[in-house]
Nucleic acid binder design. Structure first.
Lengths: 232, 232
DNA sequence: TAGATTGTTAATCGATTAACAATC
DNA sequence: TAGATTGTTAATCGATTAACAATC
């Protein structure tokens, strides 16, 4: 609302610091959810020695439409070259910055049954920028055992494990009945992002982000289509 | 377009067979994706002895808004009672019918590393109406071993395993590089619904349904929010 | 320059929310 | 009957698609 600063031309700057501003102001949730897929596609074509790729080529590998890919990337700023395409390495770096993958992120896993055990050893976490820094379980038979090179700690040490590891993210792989309690304690200990595998809706305060993966539900959704097909 | 049949009143029937028509004509994808959550919520309140529940109560347990729950359920037909709420057992049955859970569905798991192993033993599949009828792996060291009471079969027997078990659904837990090939062979063998855990977009023909769960991507999406928060 | 391909706009489509009349 | 609660409508919001001008 103020007068244009002295020396300004006809394109009024909105900002005192116009250079090198962080790329992403607001990125829609649906776009954010697809960015990891683009990162995978870029890694794949880069491994094949490709240096520059068009939206058509990348979209094909990522399994989306070229229009959608371009639209999504446009929210991160302008990183392609008209007539040429996208520089694979550069775009990869930009998406990494937007997703906050410039540093390794420490993660804690709570619940070391079959699934938690598998996730503790899952190479995909490490490959994508995460380090498992702590393991917690309530079962005295499991506590003290070594999983993926770490000692499993008892439930009462949950907050310590989170703080000592500096974790702001956690994975919940406990039975449904224990999930909300574990969630509350993780949040109290400072965790702000939770990946929940327990088949239960979790209540969290504002500022905490939960993503739930229910393996049984996924199959049920597939069953719907399977069945709808057989009826037509 | 024809003349009203003799004896019709002012509400013209559109159909020759107006009674007991299947509840679901078209259910939007976003609604279908939430139905398993409603099923879980219903099971939970039923276990607590509740016979009738309002949309407010159910929505609270399911973690959605009451308006959304009512809207979703309205696509399945009219199963509540105004002024009273929903009969828990009846609604549970209706959602089960829509999802095609009236019979057990046979599922094959391909890839018995840590994750596949954990899924083969996952009680949530059995509890939600699925039976694991076959296991397949390419590693000769794994083939022939016993997992979850089943013998692991070699890759070349994939089509036999699918046909013998009558499976129309499968879970892929192989490394990314092998996923598309496994997918193609599953589809050729008659599988129509695939739950994919390999971090790779799968190409499938029309009529085949793929749901992909990428655990690394889930953490990356959480990382975005974690990071966006720390910047504001 | 001519051909290729992005970034953006506008149009379409689908999903969510809010409000309330119908009705138990 | 009065109070409660559904089922549905209309309004809003967000996401996707298609088309093309900008530009390398």
């Amino acid at each position: 609302m103020g007068a244009p600063p002295p020396g300004s031309t006809d394109a009024p700057p909105r900002d005192a610091a116009p250079l090198v501003r962080p790329a992403a102001r607001t990125v829609p949730p649906s776009t954010v959810a697809r960015l990891p897929g683009y990162l995978r596609a870029l890694a794949e074509v880069e491994a094949q020695g490709v240096r520059t790729a068009s939206s058509d080529a990348l979209a094909d590998v990522a399994g989306v439409s070229p229009a959608q890919l371009r639209k999504d990337l446009s929210f991160l700023g302008s990183h392609g070259t008209r007539g040429v395409g996208y520089d694979v390495a550069h775009l990869r770096g930009q998406i990494g910055v937007v997703l906050g993958l410039t540093r390794q992120r420490p993660v804690v896993i709570v619940g070391l049954g079959n699934l938690g055990h598998a996730l503790a050893n899952y190479p995909g976490f490490t490959e994508r920028g995460f380090v498992v820094v702590g393991l917690v379980d309530a079962d005295p038979h499991v506590v003290g055992t070594q999983v993926a090179g770490l000692r499993v700690e008892p439930a009462e040490r949950l907050a310590d494990v989170v703080r000592e590891g500096g974790a702001t993210m956690a994975v919940i792989t406990v039975p449904a009945g224990a999930a909300q309690d574990v969630c509350d304690r993780l949040v109290a200990a400072g965790v702000r992002g939770i990946l929940n595998f327990a088949p239960r809706a979790l209540q969290v305060p504002d500022g905490v982000d939960v993503r739930s993966v229910d393996l049984g539900s996924e199959l049920q959704i597939l069953a719907f289509h399977d069945q709808a097909r057989s009826m037509s």
